Simulated assay, not measured.
Amino acid sequence: MEAYQKVAQSRMTEFEEISLNKIPREQNTEADKLALAASGWPDAQTVTKIEEILQPSTSEKGQPRTVMQVESIPNDWQGWIMNYLEYRIQPGNPTEARKLRMKAGRLGGRSLAHKVLTQGYFWPYLSREAEAYAKRCQKCQNHAPVSHNPAEDLNAIVGPWTFARWGMDIVRPLPTASKGYKYVLLVTDYFTKWVEAEAYRTITGSDVVKFIWRNVRKPTNESPYALAYGMEAVIPTEAILPTIRTITVEQGDNDGQIGHSLDLLEEKRERAAINLANYQNATSRYFNKKVRHKTFRQGDRVLKRVVENTKDNKTGKFNPIWEGPYEIVEVFGKGAYKLKEVMTGKTLPRPWNAIHLRRHYA
């Protein structure tokens, strides 16, 4: 690496101006694919172009290969804290030194209680008060991890007339996730609002057909066409290869068969509704196993998850995960809450789900 660094530095002198721009992770898909390949993920070979270089690309021949020394402590806020904790090195500015000591001394409740005990202090309820004090740390709350467990039980909707109309859409390319997924195929029943979705690396016509057979017919054991008209649709292949239905049409008994199918349509729809209810119940049982109930009352203060339109991309991974505080002004039920900003009193235009909220301690 040292040889490449020397070549790069020599080339830099040929330019009048040089600027370095950080590429966000969601836009740097090639580097993400290389990281997946280096981690040993087997499918990375099929989606990543790998070039093998047998000889060094630098012009320095016969030079001994050396390993560039990397500083163990970076020259940033992390390095400053590490230097303070290990060597008690502080900035010369008293104000900056005080800020550094405060950041380095931020501890969890249990660690804080142990630190107090090692200093020779003790009082009743020390551990409980240390926990309460640590919870009030504003920066710790803003950067607290996000729980991916659902906050409420699954609310399945069952209606008397289902699958009268479906909506299908392919979500445009998203930031490449793990294992190369960047497309989402989803269908929604317009009556029950039931949604089925799957993630894909690429989407083809065969993927759509498999998705429909696996997700649309599975809940009812019937196709949407059969639930609407009482019979299955005639496919082009049946026009060439003789089947019972095409033979019936040729014999002039088609109208009678359609009438019999319509007479049995209500029974088929009832059976499909029962199958759908059983499917939704099984889905709800699986979903509810992972639920960690999170409820709030009117007047409680919470933090709200930072979304993309309010995210400051300049700070990168150090951007706060939670923002606020907000106050609960109305409880809608099913985990939906209406919020207002504590500082400005402005009410947010739409409700927020409990999975995107976190209790605030002040």
Results as ranks from 00 to 15, higher is better:
Ile258Phe: 12
Ser72Gly: 02
Ala151Tyr: 08
Ile203Phe: 04
Thr162Val: 11
Val146Ile: 15
Leu303Cys: 08
Pro24Gln: 05
Lys139Asp: 14
Gln119Ile: 03
Asp207Trp: 01
Val249Ile: 15
Asp153Asn: 15
Pro175Leu: 10
Gly256Val: 07
Phe191Tyr: 10
Ala113Ile: 04
Met82Leu: 11
Ala104Arg: 04
Ala130Glu: 02
Arg269Lys: 13
Ile170Lys: 04
Phe15Tyr: 15
Tyr133Asn: 05
Ala31Arg: 08
Asn93Gly: 00
Trp166Met: 08
Glu52Asn: 13
Arg11Thr: 02
Gly40Gln: 05
Phe163Gly: 03
Lys290Met: 13
Trp77Asn: 13
Gly324Ser: 07
Leu34Tyr: 10
Glu250Gly: 12
Met82Ser: 06
Met82Phe: 05
Asn254Ile: 11
Tyr87Ala: 11
Val331Phe: 01
Val216Ile: 15
Trp352Ala: 01
Lys294Leu: 14
Thr29Lys: 10
Glu198Cys: 08
Asp169Pro: 06
Glu196Gly: 02
Glu270His: 13
Glu17Cys: 13
Leu357His: 04
Asn75Cys: 06
Ala31Ile: 02
Ser223Phe: 10
Val158Ser: 09
Arg201Leu: 02
Asn28Phe: 03
Phe191Pro: 03
Val249Cys: 14
Leu112Cys: 08
Val234Ile: 15
Thr162Gly: 13
Tyr84Phe: 13
Gly230Asn: 05
Trp123Asn: 00
Thr315Cys: 10
Tyr229Thr: 01
Pro160Ile: 00
Trp161Ser: 15
Glu222Lys: 12
His114Cys: 05
Asn313Glu: 08
Phe15Val: 09
Glu232Arg: 09
Asp312Ala: 03
His356Glu: 14
His148Gln: 07
Asn275Thr: 01
Phe287Glu: 03
Pro224Ile: 06
Val171Ile: 15
Ala97Pro: 03
Gln63Ile: 07
Asp255Cys: 09
Leu227Pro: 04
Val47Tyr: 12
Thr118Glu: 14
Pro325Lys: 06
Ile244Cys: 01
Lys99Phe: 09
Tyr225Met: 04
Thr188Tyr: 02
Asp255Arg: 14
Ile50Trp: 07
Thr243Lys: 03
Asp253Lys: 15
Pro224Trp: 05
Asp32Ile: 09
Tyr84Gln: 05
Trp194Met: 04
Glu341Ile: 01
Ser178Gly: 12
Leu112Tyr: 06
Ala144Gln: 06
Ala362Met: 01
Pro124Val: 09
Asn254His: 15
Ser261Gly: 07
Ser57Asp: 12
Glu86Asn: 12
Ile50Phe: 10
Gly109Pro: 02
Leu185Lys: 10
Arg305Ile: 12
Glu330Trp: 00
Glu131His: 11
Lys6Val: 12
Asn221Ser: 15
Arg292Met: 11
Val67Gly: 09
Gly120Ala: 02
Ile355Glu: 10
Ala8Trp: 05
Leu117Lys: 11
Leu34His: 06
Phe296Glu: 03
Val70Leu: 12
Ile50Met: 13
Pro236Met: 05
Arg88Ile: 00
Ala144Trp: 06
Tyr337Glu: 01
Lys218Asn: 12
Ser72His: 01
Glu16Met: 11
Ala8Ser: 09
Ala31Asn: 05
Asp76Gly: 08
Phe287Ala: 11
Ala233Ser: 14
